[in-house]
Amino acid sequence: MNWVLVILGGTVGAPLRYLTDRAVQSRHDSGFPWGTFTVNVVGCLVLGTLTGAATAGAASSHLQLLLGTGLCGALTTYSTFSYETLRLAESGARAQAALNAIASVTAGLGAAFVGVTVAQAIWA
């Protein structure tokens, strides 16, 4: 049963990742990977919120599998983040590559922290 929840979450997360990436990226003329940045930060926020809810006893293990492992696992993408950062550096846009790496890690951790904090405030 657990694997079905992961598959269901991934079935929603993967197309959501693609559609969000395309929608966000189409609104920017720069080579900066705004779409990937957006899905990764949103995924960190969702996972942080889910983690906060779980630690407060408000999220079941089934919900964690569905949303955390399935949805967020398919929504976020470390491999694309790595590839796009490397591509920026190789094309000579080293400042953008560094900015992408620093901003992605900082914003992702910040979003996860905010999610945990808000969820614990709501359910604690």
Rank of each mutant, 00 (worst) to 15 (best):
T51A: 13
W34I: 08
V41N: 03
H28Y: 09
A58M: 06
A56W: 04
P33T: 08
S60A: 06
G43S: 05
A56L: 09
V46E: 02
L45K: 02
D29T: 14
A54Q: 09
V41I: 12
V42F: 09
F32T: 06
T51M: 14
S61P: 13
V39E: 10
S60Q: 06
T49Y: 13
V46R: 04
T49C: 12
T49N: 00
A56Y: 06
G35Y: 08
L47P: 00
W34L: 05
G35S: 11
V41H: 01
V39I: 14
G31M: 06
A54N: 11
V46M: 05
V41F: 01
F37P: 02
G48M: 01
L47C: 00
T55Y: 13
G43F: 01
P33M: 09
W34V: 10
T38N: 03
T36H: 03
N40M: 03
L50R: 01
G48D: 00
G31A: 13
S30Q: 03
V46C: 11
L45H: 03
S61Y: 13
G52D: 07
A58F: 07
W34N: 12
F32M: 10
A53L: 10
G48T: 01
G57F: 05
G31L: 12
F32W: 15
A56M: 04
D29W: 07
S61G: 15
N40R: 01
A53I: 11
D29G: 15
A56S: 14
G31C: 05
N40Y: 06
V46I: 14
A59F: 06
T49G: 14
F32C: 12
S61D: 15
W34Q: 07
A53G: 14
L45R: 03
G35C: 10
A54K: 12
A54S: 14
C44M: 14
V42C: 12
V39M: 07
T36S: 07
F37W: 15
G43L: 01
T49D: 00
W34E: 04
A54Y: 09
T51E: 12
G52T: 06
A53Y: 11
N40E: 02
T51R: 05
G48Y: 01
N40I: 05
G48N: 00
L45E: 03
T51Q: 14
F32N: 06
T55Q: 15
A59C: 11
G35A: 08
G43A: 04
D29V: 07
A56N: 08
V46D: 02
A54M: 12
T36M: 03
A53F: 12
G35K: 08
T38W: 04
V39P: 07
G43E: 00
A58N: 09
G57H: 00
F37S: 02
F37L: 14
F32R: 10
N40H: 04
G57P: 00
V39T: 04
